[in-house]
Write a protein that binds this DNA or RNA. Sequence first.
DNA 1: CCATGTTGTCATCAGGCAATGTCTTCGCAT
DNA 2: ATGCGAAGACATTGCCTGATGACAACATGG
Lengths: 186, 186
Amino acid sequence: MSGGTQRRRHDSARSRELLLTAAGELFAERGFDRTTIRDIGERAGVDPALIARYFGSKTLLYVAALEAERGDVPPADLLDPERMREIFERADRRGPVPLAQVAVQRLSDPAAQDAARAALHTRLVDPLRDRFVREGLDRPQLRAEIMVAAVVGVMLGRHSGAFDELTRADPDALVPLLRGALTTED
Amino acid sequence: MSGGTQRRRHDSARSRELLLTAAGELFAERGFDRTTIRDIGERAGVDPALIARYFGSKTLLYVAALEAERGDVPPADLLDPERMREIFERADRRGPVPLAQVAVQRLSDPAAQDAARAALHTRLVDPLRDRFVREGLDRPQLRAEIMVAAVVGVMLGRHSGAFDELTRADPDALVPLLRGALTTED
DNA sequence: CCATGTTGTCATCAGGCAATGTCTTCGCAT
DNA sequence: ATGCGAAGACATTGCCTGATGACAACATGG
């Protein structure tokens, strides 16, 4: 049976990876503050003390998780309905992107706050602002920040337990409504 | 009519009031979970142990703070630009309404979560839904929930430290942009 | 002016947190 | 095979949290 080692008890690369994955999921689901290193260790099936060994601290693990998903979340143009749909669907599967939380609430840890803030701008705000600039709109930066904040509000709202229909709504139904939601003829 | 009570060391009504005010401010600024009863006591200049005496627990104090500001935040029609401006200005002065946080993040305490959720619907979601119903729009409930979530996102985003221009922007400049933000001609 | 109930202060408890250091167990190079 | 460095398990430290109960200061009705 199994020529390979079914029991690999010492495998730092694997442990590191398990911790990073579990951390990414939990940070996405609950945010930085409400995720404990014990939770992460439990989900990963790895001793939480190893977080200190491999990443230095909970904060640095957060930063690492942020960078690890860089590939997952390419700089997204929120004005593209298809992209927006992808974002919502991803949030349904894996929880909201960790950095979404920072758009809406200060983190307790300044280093984590800075890292998340930077990621938020790089991946969401800046691409949008650049598009507005190209379109020649006034106040492109402000427009981009408003839109990101609004979309993040909706994305988090879906998982906050405070909205029933929003939680149940299909992303396909959501996107068109969201795009028109804030405009009405008086 | 006590002419000169300059020193009132025993005044339960006053202590109660001070605690309630401080709690309302802090819950609004930081949310339920990240506000401690020691913080509240410090800001109020009152011993935190009195929270237990007058309100029973931190959770019940939160519920009391929610109800105390009912007058402050009349059911607001977010489609009225003037109302929207008022909401943003109030948030600048006293911090976002405490119940805003629940739109975006689960609270650790189920009782607090339920109370905030109920208040959120009564004051923001339901009036908006009713208006959409009157206008004969489809999916009125979903539309209302989306819009509340989006506005809350922007309101919290202003104070999260993650957006510079959004933080500095004047409410007067904000409202029109927000109303049109999610719509663009492709 | 005293007795009694009210209000405020303080020390402390139990639980949960991140982080650290120690000790054991393992894998690999020799 | 074996010895040593790497990897993991575990207990502990120090801190912060909400809550509680004992005690002191006060006000007031008799």
